[in-house]
Structure formats: structure tokens, C-alpha cells
Simulated scan of single mutants.
Amino acid sequence: MILKNERAALSAGARIAGLLRAGDVITLRGPLAAGKTTLVRGLLGELGHQGDVPSPSFAIVQPYDALEPPVWHVDLYRLEDASEIDELGLDDIRAEGVLIIEWPEHGPSGAWPEALALSLEMRPDGARALTAQVPEAWEGRWPLQ
């Protein structure tokens, strides 16, 4: 899918929000400034979040517990060792909420095999190419319409 501009990325995030179920995991890959957090802003906005959606690069975990389902936006970019992920308590949200994980490649190898794995690639014209690896848990809910 081609996201021509920021508005298209926000819209794609909003459409993903309508597909979410408690226990879901979404991973987001792409270079810095590819639009990962923009996609999350659209998703959170559709779920009713009002206000800023900062990149969780420094906080690492940004919870949005008041949403239904609750969402934890996670950025693993600054992890120095994949074993640090155990300290984040990410499994705690999984029973009742959704994990959205940027930079999953900084986590343990093979983590989150059930995740909807999204990748954003910057194109020369400024658009973004969004691709997905769809696990069994997401069959029937993907692709975006």
C-alpha cells in the first residue's frame, strides 16, 4: 500500500484501529522518520485519544490505558541488549490490551510471531510504502479496506 502523505498514514492507522482485538501485537519497522509514530497517531486518535502522541523513543513505553482496548506504544530503538525487554512488563498488557512495538528487531529474536508485522519504506517521491506480513491471528481482518 502506498501512503502518499501524512494524512494517508493517519488514515491507515485509523483503519487499523478498527481491526484491533485485545491481545493483538503490531510491530512497526522502518528507518528513522519513516512514519511509524504517525501511523500510531492515527490509530490512537481513532480509538479516542486526544492530545499529543510522542514517539516513545526516550520513555520506551507509552501507555494509553484509558482507551478501549488499552494500548501500549513501545519503542525498542534505545535498548542496548534484547534481554532488557523482560524488564518492560510487556506481557502484562497482552491479556487485555494491544502492544504496538516500533523497532522490534532490537528485541529478542523471534519475539512476537503472532504480530501483524508492518514495514514502512520511504520512497523518493516522499510517499511511504506500507507492507505487511500477516500471521494467522490476523487472517480475515487484513488487508485494510
Rank of each mutant, 00 (worst) to 15 (best):
W112I: 06
W138M: 09
E87G: 08
A115K: 10
L67K: 04
A34Q: 03
V98Q: 06
V98E: 03
L76H: 00
L47F: 07
P135W: 14
L47A: 07
A33Q: 05
A66M: 07
L67W: 04
R78D: 03
E105K: 10
E87W: 12
A66D: 11
Y64A: 06
W103P: 05
S109M: 15
A82M: 12
E68G: 11
D81V: 07
Q133C: 14
A137L: 11
G45H: 10
A137H: 03
R78W: 02
G42Q: 13
E68N: 15
D75F: 11
H106K: 15
Q50I: 03
Q50C: 01
H49S: 02
S57V: 09
M122N: 00
P56C: 08
G42W: 15
A59M: 07
P31I: 05
G140M: 12
L130K: 10
G97T: 02
E139G: 05
V98N: 07
D65K: 14
P63N: 09
G89K: 09
S83G: 14
M122Y: 00
E46C: 12
R123H: 01
D52N: 14
I85N: 08
P56G: 10
L99I: 03
I93K: 01
D81W: 05
V61W: 02
E121R: 04
S109G: 13
G48H: 11
S119G: 01
S109H: 15
L116I: 04
E102T: 03
S55T: 09
P104D: 06
